[in-house]
Design a protein around this nucleic acid. Structure first.
Length: 170
DNA sequence: GCAGTGATCATA
DNA sequence: ATGATCACTGCC
């Protein structure tokens, strides 16, 4: 089976566009079955009050400033790993959070299902890392992709209601 | 409905 | 050095 990994160029766009277009693609972990991505969220950069980059560069968020297609993994509540992919132009700290894929719903459960942890942080998404997104050209009816506000960002002021969460209905 | 969990970051 | 916070989950 030939691997069709999405290239860096796919991620070198706004996080919102990438988050939308990842719906229907397949997140692939080496040695496992690919899972169709069904839920994502975009974090657009330093101006986005929900983004980890909203207070500038720190040790934790440094991977956000790496090239598009870089994996950004961090731990939340001391328990769960969150899996993100860096998007946009160089040095623009934007990313997409992968929230659900296949039968797995919830970002913490997804990282767990994919056996993704800190060791993937700051690596380029791709076959060498053992984690990549396959472009299987599955047709997704645009009417079945919903855009809603993001989850768990009640602190984000006027960015709370931005419809930057995408999910496949039905 | 809410406790668990510990790294991270701002404040001092 | 200290304390509040957190892009969540599972069990009550």
């Amino acid at each position: 089976m030939r691997i069709q990994s999405l290239k860096k160029e796919f991620f070198e766009r706004s996080a919102v566009a990438v988050a939308r277009d990842l719906i229907g693609k397949f997140i692939q972990r080496e040695g496992r079955t690919g899972l169709m991505i069904t839920e994502t969220e975009a974090y657009e950069g330093p101006d986005d009050k929900a983004s980890h980059a909203r207070h500038g560069r720190t040790e934790r968020n440094a991977p956000l400033y790496m090239p598009a297609g870089t994996i950004y993994v961090y731990r939340i509540y001391g328990v769960h790993w969150m899996l993100n992919v860096v998007c946009g132009a160089p040095d623009h700290p934007a990313a997409v959070l992968l929230r659900s894929a296949g039968e797995v719903t919830g970002p913490g459960r997804l990282a767990k299902a994919l056996a993704v942890d800190q060791s993937f942080n700051a690596k380029p998404l791709g076959p060498p890392a053992g984690l990549w997104v396959e472009d299987r050209h599955v047709w997704i009816d645009p009417a079945k992709v919903a855009a809603t506000p993001r989850i768990g960002i009640g602190y984000a002021g006027d960015f709370i209601d931005k419809p930057w969460r995408f999910l496949l209905k039905g």
